[in-house]
Simulated scan of single mutants.
Amino acid sequence: MMLNPIEIICYYLVQPIVDLLAYLLNDVHYLAFLAAICVIGVLLGLVMGIITLICFKYQGVEEPKQKLQNEEGIEIQSNNNKLKSE
């Protein structure tokens, strides 16, 4: 019988982590449980950050165009103000 991917992830990846956390909470100490939660959070954050960077780099996002220079921006604003006052 072939397992589907959800069963593989839940049974072989998530269930041992849940069992470890339950063991730490019930049999070891509450602070060990909190430390394990913190470590898991940091590791998940790093993994998700790396995945995000990889996805962002492979999207082929073009670099943004240069903005207007300050002098041009000031001229546009002053022209708009003159039009509004008239």
Rank of each mutant, 00 (worst) to 15 (best):
L3A: 15
N4Q: 12
N4P: 01
P5D: 14
P5A: 10
P5Y: 07
E7C: 03
I9K: 07
I9G: 00
Y11D: 14
Y11L: 13
Y12N: 14
Q15H: 05
P16N: 06
P16Y: 05
P16S: 05
I17D: 04
I17E: 12
D19A: 14
L20Y: 03
L20D: 05
L21S: 00
L21A: 03
A22S: 12
Y23M: 08
Y30M: 07
L31T: 11
A32K: 01
A32I: 00
L34F: 11
L34I: 09
L34V: 11
L34E: 11
A35K: 10
A35I: 03
A36V: 00
A36P: 00
C38F: 11
C38K: 09
C38D: 13
V39K: 14
I40Q: 06
I40Y: 10
G41Y: 01
V42G: 01
L44A: 13
L44V: 11
G45K: 01
L46H: 03
L46G: 05
L46Y: 06
L46A: 04
L46Q: 04
L46V: 13
V47H: 03
I50S: 02
I51L: 14
T52A: 11
T52V: 00
I54A: 05
I54E: 04
C55P: 00
C55R: 14
F56Q: 09
K57M: 10
Y58T: 12
Q59N: 09
Q59A: 06
G60A: 02
G60P: 00
E62S: 12
E62C: 02
E62P: 00
E63F: 07
P64M: 04
P64R: 10
K65E: 14
Q66S: 10
L68A: 10
N70E: 12
E71I: 09
E71W: 02
G73N: 10
G73K: 06
I74Y: 06
I74N: 03
I74D: 06
E75G: 00
I76R: 14
Q77F: 13
S78Q: 15
S78C: 02
N79G: 01
N79V: 03
N79E: 15
N79R: 15
N80M: 12
N81C: 01
N81Y: 06
N81I: 15
K82C: 02
L83M: 07
L83K: 10
K84A: 08
S85T: 04
S85Q: 11
E86P: 00
E86G: 04
